[in-house]
Simulated assay, not measured.
Amino acid sequence: MEYMEINRANGRAANEMRPVNLTREVMKNALGSCLVEFGDTKVLCAATIEEGVPGWRKASHAGWVTAEYAMLPASTNRRTKRETGSRKGRSMEIERLIGRSLRTVVNMKALGEYTVTVDCDVLQADGGTRTASITGAWVALHDALMKWVEAGKIARLPLTGQVAAVSMGLVDGCELLDLDYVEDSHAEVDMNLVATDTGEIIELQGTGERTPFSRERLGRLLDLGDAGIAQLIALQNEVTAFRD
């Protein structure tokens, strides 16, 4: 498929992602941690495991995976206030998205009655913080669960697959993969794709911000997203050897 030429930061092609890095074991006290970088977007993901599950889940003989998300005050060009008294709706929406994305690829029965929490803290925001968070959160989750297996807490790794996320959009009439902040802030169509390593969609968020879009355009944007997901899944495998 051919894409229109467009001037993007760092000379990226329309179907090219920003440089992506997944750096594991960056925190001493977390069972699993990952610094994920999508270009200038940087998110610190840390996974911890606690005995027990939420009250409503007791006696289920199954575990639980959840997430929390926050942006540090200096993560944007204007100071973001800490969410101490009340949570922002956006933060709550994103952490719920991260949590349900991760739960899709966890066998809760095999996990047993443990709760895994993955904290995603945005150190620097330049678009795509939710997609970076999901991609890095899976790595942190994988490493934490591996530590739990090695400690003899559970018999086997309860992961059934991988999950990653990427953004797509229409900017100045061009279909683009992995939007940075400048592109995202004036996109005509804005989308986020969360998918597994088998290509199945967990969540697709798509909005015509300034213009509606056709089913044909949706298909082309999904093709872009699929290519991005494949790249991210391959990188996760490279750092974790999950499929080796």
Rank of each mutant, 00 (worst) to 15 (best):
G99Q: 10
D172Q: 15
T104A: 15
V106A: 10
P54T: 01
Y114G: 04
G89D: 00
E68S: 06
G161W: 14
V118C: 04
L157Y: 10
M108H: 01
R82W: 00
N77K: 06
W148C: 15
W138K: 11
G173T: 02
R156E: 07
L177W: 08
S133Q: 02
G161P: 10
G55K: 08
K81N: 03
G161S: 11
D119R: 00
G127F: 14
A70I: 03
W56M: 13
G128W: 07
M92N: 06
K153D: 07
A70P: 03
K147S: 14
A47Q: 01
G112T: 02
V122K: 04
K153M: 12
I49P: 01
R156A: 13
L102M: 13
K147V: 05
E51N: 04
L141E: 12
K81A: 12
T129Q: 05
L97T: 05
G169A: 10
A140W: 03
I154E: 09
V43H: 00
T131Y: 04
V105Y: 11
L159F: 12
D126T: 00
M92I: 15
A144V: 08
D126L: 01
D178G: 04
L44S: 08
Y114T: 01
L97Q: 01
V139R: 00
T41S: 13
G85N: 08
L159Y: 07
A74C: 07
L145V: 10
M71A: 09
M168A: 10
N77T: 01
V122C: 03
V105F: 12
R100H: 13
C45G: 08
A74R: 02
A67R: 00
A144P: 06
A164W: 13
M92K: 06
A110M: 04
T135V: 02
K58L: 04
V116S: 02
A110Q: 03
T131F: 05
V171M: 04
H61R: 05
D126P: 00
